[in-house]
Design a protein around this nucleic acid. Structure first.
Lengths: 153, 153
DNA sequence: AACTAATAGGAAATATTCTTTCTAATTATC
DNA sequence: GATAATTAGAAAGAATATTTCCTATTAGTT
């Protein structure tokens, strides 16, 4: 499905989404036109979902990253959709997964500071009586963070 | 530090890093030149770290996402740097945090399938006798994933 | 293997966008 | 309220994206 040109292209675009088409073409040893067509095709087929700017959280006063495991009080429609609505509408929750194991969900939460995390937990999450149990771990240090995916096959 | 123009600019660039400068300028109600200068300043001051293409993992045969909690056998220099080297050199590990709580680290790992995760664990991680204990939870469903940060203050 | 069809690459022209420069306006400071 | 510093805007020039047309390569069929 993806040949070696495509793989080279997505490897580079995952590092620099704003590279010029000519530079990209040079790096993958194609001329500009076919390189451009391949990028368009990768976009159209959904391999490339979108292009984003990644910010430095500390520079916008977001210094506390935490993972929060959560179990719901029950699994009725009302509880589930209330939780969904909470997740969707809360910008502090960057990621949410339903997970195997003891808890129902794992949340990745980024807030200003530890105090803000406490009030996030108490006011926004636990006060809804949607959550039966939760467990928070703070990310003390980010050792690695990348969005770079390496294609398989 | 960031005024409302800057906030508007980063909000938009976090959604679409490849918007044209003129379109961006229109959306934030500036003319092209000052908008462009603000973007450059946001890049130079490190608020914008870089621009990346985000891929659809399923489209490149990456279907199993797991979080793995890990504790090291000890905290000697050799063990720590061996672990660092493993994290850095392993593309399946997208994120790694040192965390509070029962374990030392939390890893976000993306691989082809469950079988591949098992062999990742057994061959790459546990065989190094660097890890004392680990606990894996599979992400059964991704309910939310965003890189969009909302500036505080 | 030769023919054909389909797919993909390349050169070059055109359209669009970026980037700089210069000037005017706004904001902050004393 | 005057002055300095900062920021916005218009417009020209430079760079880049995108299309078009043509050629080459690949894949499938007989």
């Amino acid at each position: 499905m993806l040949d070696s040109y495509d793989k080279a292209i997505i490897t580079i675009l995952q590092k620099n989404a704003r590279i010029t088409n000519q530079d990209l073409a040079d790096q993958v040893s194609l001329s500009a036109a076919p390189c451009w067509r391949r990028v368009k095709r990768l976009e159209e087929t959904g391999v490339i979902q979108h292009y984003v700017a990644l910010l430095n959280p500390a520079k916008i006063a977001l210094n506390t990253l935490a993972y929060i495991e959560v179990s719901l009080t029950d699994h009725t429609e009302a509880t589930m959709s209330g939780f969904d609505e909470f997740i969707d509408s809360t910008p502090e929750v960057l990621e949410c997964y339903s997970v195997s194991g003891q808890y129902d969900y794992l949340l990745r939460v980024l807030v200003k500071d530890n105090l803000t995390l406490e009030s996030f937990l108490m006011k926004k999450l636990l006060r809804r009586n949607i959550v039966k149990a939760s467990n928070t771990f703070f990310a003390l240090n980010q050792k690695k963070y990348t969005t770079q995916l390496v294609p398989q096959d």
